[in-house]
Amino acid sequence: MLELRLVQGSLLKKVLEAIKDLVNDANFDCSATGFSLQAMDSSHVALVALLLRSEGFEHYRCDRNLSMGMNLNNMSKMLKCAGNDDIITIKADDGSDTVTFMFESPNQDKIADFEMKLMDIDSEHLGIPEAEYQAIVRMPSSEFARICKDLSSIGDTVVISVTKEGVKFSTRGDIGTANVVCRQNTTVDKPEEATVIEMQEPVSLTFALRYMNSFTKATPLSGTVTISLSSDLPIVVEYKIAEMGYIRFYLAPKIED
């Protein structure tokens, strides 16, 4: 028996919007720790890892570890039927091949339940090693989204370089080149407006902008984004989900042939 009650149901709606274009089908894993997902895109170039900790739910009952295969496009269709202020409860019985999403309006005058068919997904779970990164950049998520969108109108790839001067996003295409440099800036009114650069050593890596733009669909989940870079590792683009956990996108770099 599984029953997870999320008062801020809009979080789950936003999570689905953030990942449904990157991943078609995925197993949601439910354990005492929380509600989680790890999935790769169909090209096996990007990986998304989601964690919504059990403590973040108003009610969290998960009698035994359960993996539920869902088509994310179908799940998104169902969650779009929930209001932004609705409380969402996820329910499943042991051995059932369906999951139920229950939506309650804030004043309890409307209760809806949507039952979705589960699917068997033979997915590979990858071990993500703990790593020390050469550079970690925290910046406003809206700024990062703007840069990725702007650069993708010029080129297909972005070179992200971190030096003591700041973080530079560069692209080139048929019509020309573009460079955006963000310097560390901690003298701001609100902490989420700051750009903070922790650099152990300079690093420069190349990535496909198509994936970066896909990751920025998580922007509504968090005011800030944290980008971790090391020369021999995929980039990590992390959006923290307040009080609950995170959504992390890993993207393998492009390397010189």
């Binding site: 090209s43 071990g127 042939d257």
Partner: peptide, 14 residues
């Protein structure tokens, strides 16, 4: 020309 690496190159199966 750039070669797109895959995630498998970095992360192993559990």
């Amino acid at each position: 020309a750039c070669l797109q690496r895959r995630i498998f190159y970095y992360f192993s199966k559990d």
